[in-house]
């Protein structure tokens, strides 16, 4: 599955520009603690989180993650969006909670 495929579902909106939409989503990782993400998330994975600060992109970049999805409709400021554009790691947002997000992503991927 690629990031593009996720966007075909009505629940997800693209917040960043279109760079990186071709990234392969190799797996998913959900966490709101960056040390857990850093210690456990795999390269190419997509992060699902409600943690809306700039360090999320820093960690995503270090781990070469494919995409970041903000769940629960959290507010995402311009600084995060411009960092995402600079790094080429797309960010999406959904109003769904984290569990529902994962269930829908599983359906999209199958």
């Amino acid at each position: 599955m690629r990031v593009n495929n996720i966007l075909t579902n009505i629940n997800f909106e693209l917040l960043s520009n279109e760079s990186g939409l071709n990234h392969e989503v190799k797996s998913f990782f959900a966490s709101d603690l960056l040390s857990h993400v850093m210690g456990n998330a795999a390269e190419g994975s997509t992060l699902i989180t409600v943690l809306n600060n700039i360090n999320v992109l820093g960690v995503a970049s270090l781990l070469d993650m494919s995409c970041v999805i903000f769940s629960h409709g959290v507010k995402v400021n311009d600084e995060i969006i411009s960092k995402s554009n600079e790094l080429g790691i797309p960010i999406l947002r959904t109003k769904l909670n984290t569990v529902s997000t994962i269930l829908i992503l599983d359906k999209i991927g199958s």
Binding site: D32, L33, L34, S35
Partner: peptide
Amino acid sequence: ENGFGAGMG
């Protein structure tokens, strides 16, 4: 609040 402090560092 910034996603750190889980005691995993």
